[in-house]
Computed example of a mutant assay.
Amino acid sequence: MKYRHLGNSGLEVSEIGLGANSFGMPGRRDRPESEAIVHSAIDHGINFIDTSNVYASGLSEEYIGHALKGRRDEMLIGTKFGSMRRQGPNNFGGSRNFVMRSVEESLSRLQTDYIDVYMIHRPDPRMPIEETLRALDDLVRDGKVRYTAGCNFEAWRLVNAEWTNRKNGFVGLTSSQFAYSMMTRAAEEEMIPACRELGLSVVPYLPLAAGMLSGKVNASGSAPEGTRLSIETGMGDRWITPRNIELVGLLDGWARERGHSVLELAFAWLLAEPIVATVIAGASSPEQIATNAAAAEWVLSADERAEVTAILDANPPDGAGDYYSAAGYFREETQEAPR
């Protein structure tokens, strides 16, 4: 496993990260399975795990805290705040009130006294970003958070946030996390150039397009039972189309001519972009951890990446969508009564 700096910070993260959004989800990873996956990740050199206070209503953080007992210093924890945990006023967003409450709850669930990378899950358009960033700056100064990052920002909001940090002397963001893969490239137009200008790293999520780039979807469009594409019907409807099946076939053929799989190509294509720090990938088993970790060993040349990108340009996928995920509740009137 190789490591890259997160933005301009001194923090070194593994090129492959572990996504923990399935930990605690019904029908997905239970606590023993999650622990086995975390331990396998550590054993394979993966040192960054990505979660949120809303994944499985907090169970993801709880399972991570349990798995890292006695091994906390072997894993960097990135978690998030800002998304809705429950209905009602002051229960989501970027207010100082919610940030300070959220960090204490996450620290408790994670059974730790600090968070390595604390991320704004989604920017809160109802208020100036300065309130959120000032609260994060205080948390870094207090030692409860070591580094900060943005997630699901539009490019202009990210630039505004980092400009606000620099204007006020706040600690700067290290990175921007968003959907980026061979099938989701909208970020290349504005977000990735913005990250280059600001000196921030890119942290892709959904690098396999929810599993479409895993090579597991057959020619008839059937996804294996238990995979995200089969469990989440919306994901399956979005990605499993004749055009996308054909594109994956082309990419798989290109990879196999070079002794690799389309899954390995998905990671290698992202990591051939120097601004990418760590690629967030989920895993359903310790064996899948080994597969993901091995994928980082394939290093594409600039010419090879350009060749693959030409295939993508000539065969635009269905359902690529935006690079960020917006939450509708930020635009709706806050419900006064919990529901």
Score class of each variant (00 low, 15 high):
V159W: 00
N165A: 07
N168F: 11
F170V: 02
V171N: 12
T174G: 00
S175L: 10
Q177D: 13
F178N: 15
F178E: 15
F178H: 14
F178T: 15
A179D: 12
A179K: 15
M182K: 07
T184D: 12
A186G: 04
A186V: 01
A187M: 05
E189A: 13
E190Y: 08
M191P: 09
I192V: 13
A194H: 04
C195M: 13
R196C: 01
L200T: 09
S201W: 04
P207I: 12
L208D: 01
M212N: 06
G215F: 07
V217R: 13
A223I: 00
P224Q: 07
R228Y: 07
L229F: 13
G234Q: 09
G234R: 12
M235A: 10
M235S: 06
D237Y: 10
R238H: 06
I240A: 09
R243I: 11
N244F: 10
L247E: 07
L251D: 12
G253R: 10
A255F: 10
R256E: 15
E257G: 12
E257W: 01
R258S: 03
S261W: 03
S261F: 02
S261N: 06
V262C: 04
L263S: 12
E264K: 12
A266E: 07
F267C: 03
A268T: 00
A268L: 00
A272N: 01
E273N: 15
E273Q: 15
P274Q: 10
P274K: 10
A277T: 03
A277F: 01
A281I: 14
S284D: 14
E287T: 12
T291E: 15
N292C: 07
A294G: 13
A296K: 02
E297P: 01
E297A: 15
W298T: 08
